[in-house]
Design a protein around this nucleic acid. Sequence first.
DNA 1: ATTCCGATGCGCT
DNA 2: GCGCATCGGAATA
Length: 216
Amino acid sequence: MQSNQQFIGAGARELRAFLSGQDPVAIARGLIGMELTTRTDGGLTSGFITETEAYWAPQDRASHAFGGRRTARTEPFFAGAGTSYVYLCYGIHELFNVITGPAEVPHAVLIRAVEPNLGLEEMLRRRHMENLKPQLSRGPGVVSKALGITRIHNALDLLDPASPVQLSFGRAPVMAEDIVATPRIGIDGAGAEWASRPWRFYHRGNRFVSKLNAFR
DNA sequence: ATTCCGATGCGCT
DNA sequence: GCGCATCGGAATA
């Protein structure tokens, strides 16, 4: 699976099959270009996914579900493909993930950046910004801020049309040659073996990407 | 009960 | 490039 092109026009059923039928690294690639939409008091806002990271628990030391750790916090990891996982990072930022793989298999993809689409005015308001700049929605914490995602959106089914946070195939596909792979960000504590894996992906040339070429 | 520290972002130098 | 805000989860006692 090198891009999402085969999914144009497909719906939630096909998306569910994709999210449950691949390894999380393939899915992290495939999610580039797909659309994340939220519905709140502020109306509808959305963005096209430009940057992701794969978290391949139980083996992956960088995952909260490493070793199959199962607590109240990690419960969404085990709920199956298309479930949301939102958690508080550094006491400040709410980070949004898509759970992938079959139920009981704790795979996840972190959404690190999006290109704004619907509801730009509302997103600017949430970010206390006057005009559109790339920092509106590049970085996992500000993606949630811009889209209005908080921990109340944890453990939702992102493919349910009634959900306030939804994932869909989005617009034109992103070709494999336009997806760049680098090591993941901010996981040095997991050790070199895991920190060096090129499991971060971003849309080449897109301004809405948190760190171009982050080799560390 | 206590301690440690993180899948970050922002403002200032 | 650097310091620091800020707080809940999980491990330790």
